[in-house]
C-alpha cells in the first residue's frame, strides 16, 4: 500500500506541474459549470428571451421531461438536462490526459526502467497510476457538478428545478461517471503502454467519449429517455467493461516489451 501511495503522490506532484494537464483538470470543469449557469442567468436577464424560449417545439423534443410545464420552463429543463450529460463526459476527458502522460511520459523521460527495477509489482504500479488519474477527474467532476447544481437551484424557478432534478442524475454523477472514469483511464493506460507518444495515447483514448456523445445527441433529439433504468443498465455495462479492462491493462502491461521496444 505504501508503494501505491508513493506513486500516487509522485504522479500528482509531477502531473500537476505539467501546465497542460493542470489546466485541463482545472479549467474544463470550471467552464462546464460556468457555461450553463451563465446561460440560465442570461435567460432571466435578457429582454425578449422569454419569447425565444417559449417555443412549443421544445415540448416535442423534451417529451417526458416536461410533463405539466409550460414551454418556457420546459426549455430550461431541457437545457439543464443537456448540460448535466456533459458532466458525464468530463470525467472521461480529464483522466485520459493524465493517464496518457503517466506511462508514455515515463517512457519518454526514461524513468520507467529504474522504476520497474524497484520491487514494485505491476498491479501496484498500475493501481497507483489509475487511482492517480481517476481521483482528480472524479473530484473535479463532483466539484463542478456541485457548483452547477447549486447554481441551477438558485437561478431557476422551483418547478423547473423539481422537473430537472431526478434521482437518475445522482446515479449518473455519483455512480456511472466514476465507472466511466475508470473505463477511460484503463483504456488510456492500455494504449499508453503500447505507444511511444503521449499525444497518440491521448487521442486514441479519447475515442471512449464517442458513445457518450451519442447519448447526448440521442437525448437532445428526443430519441433516448434518460431515466433510472437506463442509468442502471449503463452502470452495469460500464462496470463489466471496467473489470475486463482492468484485467487487460495488467495483462497487456508487458514490462519487457515496454523496455525493449523503446526507440
Amino acid at each position: 500500500m505504501d508503494k501505491i501511495i508513493t506513486i500516487i503522490s509522485k504522479e500528482w506532484a509531477e502531473v500537476f506541474k505539467n501546465k497542460l494537464v493542470f489546466f485541463s483538470v482545472l479549467f474544463l470543469p470550471l467552464i462546464l459549470a460556468a457555461l450553463p449557469l451563465g446561460m440560465l442567468f442570461a435567460f432571466s436577464r435578457i429582454e425578449g428571451m422569454e419569447t425565444e424560449l417559449n417555443d412549443p417545439e421544445i415540448m416535442k423534443l423534451a417529451g417526458q421531461m416536461c410533463v405539466g410545464l409550460n414551454p418556457m420552463d420546459c426549455s430550461l429543463v431541457y437545457t439543464l438536462n443537456l448540460f448535466v450529460l456533459m458532466f458525464m463526459i468530463l470525467p472521461v476527458a480529464i483522466p485520459v490526459t493524465i493517464a496518457a502522460y503517466s506511462i508514455v511520459g515515463e517512457k519518454m523521460t526514461r524513468s520507467l526502467e529504474p522504476l520497474l527495477a524497484t520491487p514494485i509489482t505491476t498491479v501496484e504500479l498500475l493501481t497507483a497510476k489509475i487511482i492517480a488519474a481517476v481521483v482528480p477527474a472524479i473530484a473535479a467532476t463532483w466539484v463542478a457538478f456541485g457548483i452547477f447544481f447549486i447554481g441551477a437551484w438558485l437561478l431557476t424557478p422551483p418547478a423547473v428545478f423539481a422537473a430537472f432534478f431526478k434521482p437518475h442524475w445522482l446515479l449518473a454523477i455519483f455512480v456511472v461517471a466514476p465507472l466511466l472514469t475508470i473505463l477511460a483511464t484503463c483504456i488510456a493506460v492500455i494504449v499508453s503502454s503500447r505507444v511511444t507518444d503521449p499525444r497518440v495515447a491521448e487521442q486514441l483514448s479519447a475515442l471512449v467519449i464517442l458513445p457518450l456523445i451519442l447519448l447526448v445527441v440521442g437525448q437532445s433529439m428526443g430519441l433516448i429517455l434518460i431515466d433510472e433504468q437506463l442509468m442502471f443498465l449503463l452502470g452495469g455495462i460500464v462496470l463489466a467493461l471496467d473489470v475486463i479492462l482492468l484485467y487487460l491493462a495488467i495483462r497487456l502491461f508487458q514490462r519487457e516489451t515496454i523496455l525493449t521496444r523503446w526507440k
Binding site: 505504501d2 506513486i7 509522485k10 509531477e14 505539467n18 526514461r110 524513468s111 529504474p114 514494485i120
Partner: peptide, 24 residues
Amino acid sequence: TETPGMYDRLSAYRNLSIFARLYE
C-alpha cells in the same frame, strides 16, 4: 540505468525519497 531517467519536475530530494520508499 544507461540514462539517469529522473523526474525532472521534482526536486532531487523528492526523487530520492520516492525511490527510497519503493525500495522499502
